[in-house]
């Protein structure tokens, strides 16, 4: 049914998406290699969040191909027809894809440890003891070993986002998606979240990150994709895209983001 394309973490080809009459993605081609920290930057409304959400099927797409870790995502082949993937298939694909949200989206009725291990316990059906052991390791990794029994409401925004990152990597995903992970944080809390992401990148985690933190992208990124008008306008190394771009749209966007207002 599915042909593995094992050499790429993510491979999309001609991805199209409309909301009603508004076309958001105009045939996006994008590849993420294993172990890459890939950044997506671009103006508001350029379709970068939609693109990211397509990767784990939080948005459906209307046309094109999308492969994650060698598996078709969001669609199934039936004979020579492509149809939307079933809910069960989509869920099993998502279990291998981590996601970190702008607004953290921790489960408020669960402790930090229960949040981190929710997928292990409720989806992968691991024993609680084993899951909690792994959960404590993960919390230690994001520097929150001592907050295991805290509820989200008792944590700062930065701490909540670090718990959310631990939850996203709990099931050893093949890739972690970050949807503007620091945009909802007070400025003084951004650093601790970026530090955790920097460590993940150093450990070789495959990451696809939508962000406005341009200097972070420059520092940590292996590759930067500039999205404009629902298309990849430019891709390349951080220095090529951010420092030495020949694309006037990229230059204009970067000038605006550096001098707000």
């Amino acid at each position: 049914m599915t042909t593995p394309l094992l050499d790429h973490a993510v491979r999309m080809h001609g991805l199209q998406k409309s909301f009603g009459a508004v076309r958001v993605l105009h045939g996006v081609d994008l590849t993420v290699e294993r172990g890459q920290a890939a950044f997506i930057i671009g103006p508001s409304g350029s379709g970068k969040s939609t693109l990211l959400r397509c990767v784990n099927s939080l948005e459906s797409y209307d046309g094109g191909e999308l492969w994650v870790d060698g598996y078709l995502v969001g669609a199934e082949r039936r004979g020579d027809r492509w149809i939307e993937a079933s809910a069960t298939l989509t869920a099993s694909r998502r279990a291998r894809i981590g996601m970190v949200f702008q607004r953290f989206n921790l489960f408020p009725n669960m402790t930090a440890l229960e949040n981190v291990t929710a997928g292990l316990r409720m989806v992968l059906k691991q024993e609680s003891k084993q899951a909690f052991e792994r959960g404590r390791e993960l919390l230690a990794r994001v520097g929150l070993a001592n907050r295991a029994d805290s509820y989200p409401s008792q944590l700062s925004g930065g701490q909540q986002q670090r718990v959310a990152i631990a939850r996203a990597i709990a099931a050893n995903p093949s890739i972690v998606l970050f949807d503007e992970p620091t945009s909802a944080l007070d400025p003084e809390l951004v650093g601790e979240v970026l530090a955790v992401m920097r460590d993940l990148a150093r450990d070789g985690m495959t990451m696809l990150i939508v962000t406005h933190e341009i200097s972070f992208a420059e520092e940590v990124g292996d590759v930067v994709h500039f999205i404009d008008g629902g298309k990849v306008a430019e891709s390349g190394s951080p220095s090529a895209v951010i420092r030495h771009s020949n694309n006037p749209r990229t230059a204009e966007f970067l000038a605006r983001i550096r001098k707000p207002g």
Binding site: S57, A87, A91, S92, R94, F101, N105, G119, L124
Partner: peptide
């Protein structure tokens, strides 16, 4: 969305 993202149906 968070529940779906960790693989829940």
């Amino acid at each position: 969305e968070a529940a779906l993202s960790i693989g829940m149906t």
